[in-house]
Computed example of a mutant assay.
Amino acid sequence: MRHDRDIVHARQRARLVADRMGFEVQDQTRIATAVSEVCRNAYAYATGGKAEFRIQEVAGKVALVIEVGDRGPGISELDDILAGRYRSRTGMGLGLLGARRLMDKLDIETSGDGTTVRLTRILSKPLGMAIPEFINKLMDELARQQPLDPVEEVQRQNQELLSSLNDLRQREEELLEANAALRASVVEKEVLLKEVYHRVKNNLQIISSLVSLKARKSTNPLVRQELDDVRSRIHSLSIVHEKLYQSDDLARVDLSGYVRDLCAHLRTSFTARGDGPELMVETDNVALGLDMAIQLGLLINEIVTNAFKHAFPDGARGEIRVSLTVLPGERLRLEVTDNGKGMPEEATDSLGMNLIRALATRVEGVLEIEGANGDGGTRVTVTMPLHGD
């Protein structure tokens, strides 16, 4: 390459060889463009060089390898160029990066004595004959062929560019259609999922009503109490699905609203006449996945229910405080405190406490209980990983 026209000839040669090897038209354009860019760099920065075309086996397949060498000053900013951080005023960085994207492989060796760029494109199908035989046949054809006029090459480049733009426009339209179909599918699934949450909530409320009806008909106080506890647990599940039905995010539950609604329901259940302790809620803003929200809701239900039962029997006045705090290191702390008479020792082995321990294990939490001796005031703390998905 000693003149501008030699770059055009190298481009023509690259396309012809790629065509005879059996590369698809789009691959021919990619190879010709990559060769043109690398040869132009050699001519611009090293005042010329040499382009060698090889047909050889690479990883068991036939490949076209074009090696462009020069005796210029080398590329001092090569690492920055290949990392996309460097652009010269003449566009060398863009040329090398573009060539790398167009070919299967690009290797560069550079020093103060010159630069060699090796471009490789692998043929996806068999060559159809032995490589030496193919090269001899190709050399005969090249010896008889006259180079195309540079103007014709420019016209061909323009045609390739228009064809590529047309292909891009067609792909863009296909992507827009696929995106619209995907969006419609997502909306449809969101509607169906909302309907599922709504139906689950309604079914849980029906079950809760049946359990409540059974409790009222029972003459055994212990049975009534156990059925009321079951109804409360069912209601905590119902609230989760109600929140998801009302939310724009169908996969995650807003913790603040969920816990407040759950605690409001518990206070109403235990203080129907307006007496009993105050129940206060403090939560950080956080959203949880459905499974963890359900486990956490059941956990709060059991701890607060225990507080109402054991710390404030017979509607005694006082205060229950529920707090949820996001801790450093993606952890969540649930703390329920009361200033009641304290949890009696026999209550530490009750069904409610056993459920609390089991639920704390389900959320991978560490359970701590202070004041479980009946001396006044109890604090229950569960520290767990914050799984938001």
Rank of each mutant, 00 (worst) to 15 (best):
Q145M: 06
I122P: 08
R118W: 01
V151S: 07
Q157W: 03
L127V: 13
M129Y: 03
D113P: 04
V117Q: 04
S88Q: 03
A130S: 10
I135C: 14
L119V: 15
A83R: 15
G72C: 07
P126L: 05
N136V: 06
P73T: 11
R101Y: 04
E153C: 11
G72F: 00
Q155F: 09
I75S: 04
A130K: 07
G98P: 05
G128Y: 00
K105G: 10
D70G: 02
A130I: 03
K125S: 14
I131C: 10
R71E: 13
K105D: 11
Y86T: 08
T90R: 07
A83D: 14
P73C: 11
Q159V: 13
L168W: 05
S124K: 13
I75L: 05
R87H: 08
R100D: 08
E77R: 09
G91Q: 04
L162V: 05
L78E: 02
L119R: 10
L123I: 10
R85A: 14
S164Y: 02
R89K: 13
L82P: 02
S88F: 01
A130V: 04
M92D: 07
T110Q: 02
L161N: 12
P150I: 12
T115A: 04
L162Q: 03
K105P: 01
E141T: 08
D167S: 07
Q157P: 00
V117R: 07
P73S: 13
D140A: 15
I135P: 06
L148I: 07
N166E: 14
Q157C: 02
Q146S: 08
S88Y: 01
T115I: 03
L82H: 01
L102E: 01
P132H: 05
A83C: 02
M129F: 05
S163H: 09
G91A: 13
N136M: 07
Y86E: 03
L148C: 04
R100F: 06
N158K: 15
R101S: 11
N158R: 15
K137H: 15
D107K: 13
I75F: 03
R118N: 04
T110L: 01
P147I: 08
